[in-house]
Amino acid sequence: MAGNKKWIRELPLHILLIPGVIAVFIFNYIPMFGIVMAFQKFVPAKGFLGSEWIGLDNFRYIFNMPNIWNVIRNTVFIAVMKIIANLIVPIIFALLLNEVRKNAFKRTIQTIIYFPHFLSWVILGGILIDVLSPTSGIVNEFIGLFGIKPIYFLGDSKWFPFTLVFTNTWKEFGYNTIVYLAALTSIDPTLYEAAVVDGAGRLKQTWHITLPGILPIVTLMTVLSLGNVLNAGFDQVFNLYSPSVYSTGDIIDTLVYRIGMVEAQFSVSAAVGLFKSAISFVLVVISNKLANKYAGYRVF
């Protein structure tokens, strides 16, 4: 085909992309350039180009903040705990659900456990603040039946990170359960028949056929979650935390918010954000490379 004609044939494709390219350029790429403010003493009136350059001063300031390492440690701890819980709980649930033969029951359970995923952390926060209350909440009333004294799940800094992990699992495990269940149902049934002929019981079948069968997808999901080691979940923490649990519950994203939007130290906030983005970027690239190598995964 002549090059000219090919170009005309391609023209509508370019036209279709124009609005998207413009929108992404304005709202994603300009802020990326705007990150230069992390190296400036940014004054809104002077803009990204006119503000004074101060090199790495903002970063020096950050790493001299008394709570910074604490915040980083909280972030990694909460995020890693969430990753682990979101790996184990859905696998167990998927294995149990896979044994269910009544499809209506299976569907009902899936529908119920997937539901909290669709509610915002504002709504769930409203619900949790009520049910976890140490004075009137139903959860403390329930554990009181076993003689346990009321626990201030959202206000006690010892409990807070675990409350985050538990409630996050409650909201999100339905999603991964469905993914793993889909992988389980795609295992070749003749493998099980062969195992039965060989005299393998259910447990042996699970160990030697089911688990190896879902291993690729488990590996893939785990490797991809590596990119989230610094994402402890802003929406959740921000709606559940309070100053009394900052020591264990404050994370990088909430710190960025308070420094930037509340204290209006724009450059410092942007510098913390850049620090996090840079590490996350490296982690995402590594995890995608690994996922590609071991599971043949490609983003596009």
Binding site: N28, P31, M32, P44, S277
Partner: peptide
Amino acid sequence: FFIITMMFNGGLIPTFMTV
């Protein structure tokens, strides 16, 4: 051009300033 925005973003404050 589009995929990069999934891996890297300007962060809260630069985005807010742009808006």
